[in-house]
Write a protein that binds this DNA or RNA. Structure first.
Lengths: 235, 235
DNA sequence: GCAAAAGTGTTGGAAATACACCCATGT
DNA sequence: ACATGGGTGTATTTCCAACACTTTTGC
């Protein structure tokens, strides 16, 4: 006895009852502000709203691989580390049906990672102005933002947001922007010099309308050596 | 023109290309040891191995609701807070095909949460002896264990593992068991008294073969008041 | 009285904070 | 010369870690 197509369909859906997607929350830093990459939603229902960089997984595609694929497809970026943050699965989160999404998050250096694709009005938004995103992306964004604030105090992720050569002022602006607090300049310097991850490259800023600051690079090698014992940055 | 059933099937699978499951990692504390609940795997392939408490999501079931349902089905427990930890989606993680699982984690008080179901040889295992679990459950377990060690220093979760009335010795044994380190008794006491979340209930231990210790309760109300400012416990 | 764990304070060192003045550059 | 941010040191406080002896109970 043959089953109907509907019966087969519902049987499959009963097990494969869900579609999976990935959303990427890409933070960047520019002009002393923390930014995030958004696009105009693909969906009619949300046409006037901004959304995160997301897409459905392909069959036989690893989740992490999908995250990197989606990021590359949407932005052209392919040299960014993504970190899984959380899964979101509210039944009503997606108008097309049951879609569970897994959020990935990263921090990048805006100047050093040029966007190569600008579809759907892709561009950087100041995090302060992000509101009313499509789907449940506001919630996802906020979860990722909080995670970022925590992570940035546990790992020196901040450096990835800056140019290779940066001044201490830029570094401090960055931490102040991410954490939303003011820090004492002298103590900030002391702390970072004490960490011993900054390499003095013997260059100074140019084109600044004041005394130029010295430029530094982050010593990734030394960090890798020491990070076993690393317990974070306390502000 | 009618499509074949196979064509329909593969078309649906291309979108609904994945099944979702939840696995629960339930930690408990008993006899000064940290324990975790495991069952014998349902699957033939893993029949001799232990596994976490998991199951597939039903159609139209919220992920978190599924986690609570699965926990209740497997153990009878229905008064436990579950926290999402991470999603695991290696393509080869499940022999039945593409199954992405979302891990949930909790800490409970073994004495105060009696198991009501013992199917599949459900019982508590000492975390030190957990190895070679079914599927990728070893990895999931270890991720959750590390998360627990971190969380327990950020929130006073430990109290939920103890009886309502507990001695400082029990509290300290608990932290030592979870973190896997020895702590100085005097400093430990100082730290917890300074937090001011312990209520002296003016009772003492009984049936101990030595000087009985004073018993305390955890002041949940005071903690709720102060937790905005709470930045964790440092050992 | 002996075993076993409870209870209790002090001290030294490390790290965090608070704080003010001179310097180098562009305009 | 002046405006702007760069660069620097010290004193104080706070927090943490290390550490030993007396007390209470059960046996």
């Amino acid at each position: 006895m043959n089953k109907s197509i509907q019966a087969i369909e519902s049987e499959i859906k009963a097990i494969y009852n869900v579609a999976l997607s990935v959303d990427c929350v890409i933070f960047g830093f520019e002009e002393n502000k923390l930014k995030v990459l958004l696009i105009r939603s693909d969906m009619e229902k949300f046409q006037s709203k901004w959304s995160l960089l997301g897409d459905l997984l392909k069959a036989e595609e690893d989740i992490e691989a999908a995250a990197y694929r989606i990021l590359k497809q949407r932005t052209g970026l392919d040299d960014v580390f993504l970190e899984q943050v959380a899964a979101f699965g509210n039944l009503s989160r997606h108008p097309a049906g049951r879609v569970v999404t897994i959020a990935y998050c990263s921090l990048i250096n805006v100047m050093h990672h040029e966007l190569k694709i600008y579809d759907n009005e892709l561009h950087w938004h100041d995090v302060e102005t992000v509101k009313d995103l499509a789907f449940d992306h506001q919630e996802i964004f906020e979860t990722c933002y909080k995670r970022l604030q925590k992570r940035v105090q546990e790992h020196p992720l901040g450096f990835s947001l800056l140019p290779n050569k940066f001044s201490l002022r830029e570094l401090q602006n960055l931490y102040e922007a991410i954490l939303g607090i003011k820090l004492d300049r002298r103590n900030f310097r002391k702390k970072f010099f004490a960490m011993d991850f900054l390499i003095d490259i013997d260059e100074i800023e140019t084109d600044v309308p004041h005394r130029p600051g010295k430029l530094y690079r982050f010593d990734y090698e030394k960090f890798e050596m020491k990070k076993k014992k690393w317990s974070g940055i306390d502000f």
